[in-house]
Design a protein around this nucleic acid. Structure first.
Length: 673
DNA sequence: CCCGCTGTGATTTTT
DNA sequence: TCACAGCGGG
């Protein structure tokens, strides 16, 4: 085993060697959290704890994969492979696949993604609202999600409109044998709560539970951890959670900071370890972060420090408007890269809203600085990927209504919206799947003979595909390729694309998808259904990242959590942007402060924050005032630079010149437009 | 089925 | 202002 405890600092070692009972590891930004988790697992194994009895839960597949890789590097494949490392959702899926029948669903349930959810809700709303009532599908979706995250079941009595929609939505899902993302958690908690045998089986399986990013857990996730870690016999739970209350930025998605703030009430008498030595940033950066976050009332006091020295002061740059701000940054990065022998990848620009990326992108393009935007729409959200996945899902199981609905007339095959609507109504009345309804004589009475023929043809086709796919020893990816081809989907795709490039891109996405299935088959035995599950849980996203290419990173503050960059620019520090206007309405100013805190602590060597006197928003140029957070920063740590003044002053006269020779770049190339 | 008109709303998005 | 969704006309 290749890990050495003396490579750790004292608190880290304390966390690693505390294996029994509840453990709260308060891991500030950049304090070696992942290292502690992997070392801790290594230490547990060295103490004779069974690898198979260890569960580590994360939020993202990325985090789970990262941990798995680190653990493999440390312990080798065999041992590391036996430790369960999983996202909350993947874990729930695994639990539900075994015992969901106890809750009245069938084992082969499908997962509804957000698109499927919205689609279903749209239909429910149209048949539920009375005259004069209205409800946005997305509003309903978020209300239902909130309710589920609070552990609420659909109401028995339909007293309110949303209650009625919730009740019908849940009933429809069950009838469709589908679960949404929230259900994965909700139903698992329900299963463990109501079925002692199932609960005890999992408790026996996992004797040691570890949770990463605990500050982001919602109520259901906390309950789930409780059910898994607590013992029915009352022995103290071996639950170790790692997190940082100061980095809780997903409250709006249901995360409860109180889970970590009041850890002691959920898991009594824990060992509490604080990791405060930061290995990422200079002290100028850390002290800026420290003074800011001290203004948050509800938090566990922490003081980050590092052995890296003070480094450059944090800069605060004032620009006339967002275009000048962007020009300045693009110009300066070009210059600093050249003069400092740096790579574009060493720089990142962080912002509050995606809309801010626009002016940045423009400036980067003008100056020929390569960049990559992290986030945006995912591979999985593209139309063709969803369509093709639906083809696969239908071939596997034609009773998957969401999938069938997606492809039933794509490409157009003469099954009109009206026909589908009738079939849908029948399926609700008869409590059967859409596929079954389509075959009923009762439906055929009410539609044109042409439609009946079209339906019949499509059903025959689906049937043939299914047979082909299930032939023994068949090359399934090859069959699927044929299916897409035979369906005429490619032709439809080409026709519906504005230009050849778009069509090519979409076709390549489809090839990637089938290629992904091939790779999946090589390393897993889940078959097509396992692959579809993995897709639903976004488990194959890693090469998505590689695709992002090289260049300066443009990223939202939310998406930047967990990342680090040598040189960071934090833009738009204006009242209304950060903190965002809506946070005041919603009373979530603390979370906005944490968001800025997360941004500041991404920087390793230098940090530049910027704000504008005016910004283009809602069509017009609107005047801005500096963010109220700026007042909270220690002025001694900050160097203020006014772009306008700087541009009117001879460069040689400014003190800035010596330290930031790169500034000249901005003046020379970024003189505004 | 496709196009263009009009109205609306405009944070963040781990699964 | 601009993006995009929903709807009605060709």
């Amino acid at each position: 085993m290749s890990f050495r405890l003396f490579d750790l600092n004292d608190p880290q070692r304390h966390a690693v060697t505390t294996t029994e009972g509840p453990l709260l590891i308060l891991a500030g930004a950049g304090t070696g959290k992942t290292r502690v988790i992997t070392f801790r697992i290594g230490y547990m194994l060295s103490q004779g704890i069974e690898a198979a009895s260890i569960l580590a839960v994360t939020f993202t597949n990325k985090a789970a994969n990262e941990m798995r890789e680190r653990l493999m590097a440390m312990l080798g494949k065999e041992k590391a492979g036996k430790v369960t490392m999983s996202t909350f959702h993947a874990l729930c899926m695994r639990i539900l696949r075994q015992d969901i029948e106890k809750l009245g669903y069938k084992k082969n349930f499908t997962i509804y993604d957000e698109g499927d959810q919205t689609g279903l809700l749209k239909k429910i709303i149209t048949r539920t609202v009375a005259i004069g009532e209205k409800m946005e599908p997305n509003v309903a979706k978020s209300l239902i999600s909130k309710a589920k995250n609070n552990g609420w079941n659909a109401p028995q009595e339909e007293k309110t409109l949303i209650g009625a929609i919730f009740a019908r939505y849940q009933a429809d899902l069950k009838q469709l044998n589908a679960v949404d993302f929230d259900d994965l958690l909700l139903l698992t908690v329900k299963l463990l709560a109501e079925h002692a045998d199932v609960r005890q089986r999992w408790q026996k399986r996992f004797r040691y539970v570890m949770v990463d990013e605990f500050q982001d857990t919602n109520r259901l996730q906390l309950e789930l951890v409780g059910y898994l870690a607590k013992r029915d016999d009352g022995t103290p739970p071996n639950v170790a959670v790692v997190g940082d209350d100061d980095q809780s930025i997903y409250g709006w998605r249901g995360a409860e900071v109180s889970n970590i703030l009041e850890f002691e009430t959920h898991f009594p008498n824990p060992t509490v370890v604080k990791l405060e030595q930061n290995y990422r940033s200079t002290n100028s950066i850390l002290n800026t972060a420290n003074t800011l976050i001290k203004n948050n009332p509800r938090r566990r006091p922490k003081q980050l420090w590092s052995g890296k020295g003070d480094g450059d002061k944090v800069r605060l740059v004032m620009a006339p408007n967002d275009h000048e701000e962007a020009d300045f940054i693009a110009g300066e990065i070009a210059k600093r890269k050249a003069e400092g022998n740096l790579r574009y990848e060493d720089f990142a620009v962080l912002f509050r809203m995606n809309a801010q990326a626009r002016s940045l992108e423009q400036a980067f393009q003008e100056k020929g600085v390569p960049y990559r935007i992290i986030g945006g729409k995912s591979f999985f959200d593209s139309r063709e990927v969803k369509d093709v996945l639906s083809y696969f899902a239908c071939t596997l199981n034609a009773d998957n209504d969401a999938a069938l609905l997606r492809i039933i007339n794509t490409p157009p095959r003469g099954i009109s919206e009206a026909t589908v609507q009738k079939a849908l109504e029948l399926s609700i009345k008869e409590k059967c799947s859409l596929f079954q309804a389509l075959q009923k004589e009762e439906l055929h009475q009410g539609i044109t003979p042409r439609a009946v023929t079209a339906i019949h043809e499509f059903m025959t086709q689906l049937d043939a595909w299914e047979t082909k796919l299930n032939e023994p020893l068949v090359n399934q990816p090859e069959v699927l390729r044929k299916i897409i081809d035979e369906s005429g989907y490619y032709d439809d795709l080409r026709r519906s694309c504005k230009n050849g490039d778009e069509a090519l891109k979409r076709e390549s996405n489809i090839r990637d998808l089938v290629g992904g299935f091939e790779r999946y088959l090589e390393k897993s035995d889940g078959g097509l259904s396992g692959f579809l599950d993995a897709m639903a849980l976004r488990q194959d996203k890693d090469d998505d990242d590689k695709e992002k290419g090289t260049g300066v990173t443009l990223i939202t503050l939310h998406a930047s959590k967990g990342l680090e960059f040598p040189h960071c620019y934090l833009v738009g520090l204006e009242e209304g942007v950060l903190p965002h206007d809506r946070s005041k309405l919603e009373g979530t100013l603390d979370e906005e402060r944490r968001l800025l805190y997360v941004g500041i602590t991404r920087a390793q060597q230098t940090l530049t924050m910027t704000y504008c006197y005016s910004r283009f928003r809602y069509g017009g140029s609107i005047p801005c005032t500096p963010s109220s957070f700026i007042k909270e920063l220690d002025p001694d740590l900050i160097e203020r630079i006014d772009l306008k003044k700087l541009m009117n002053t001879p460069v040689a006269d400014t003190a800035v010149k010596s330290r930031f020779a790169a500034m000249r770049a901005a003046l020379e190339t970024g003189g505004g437009r």
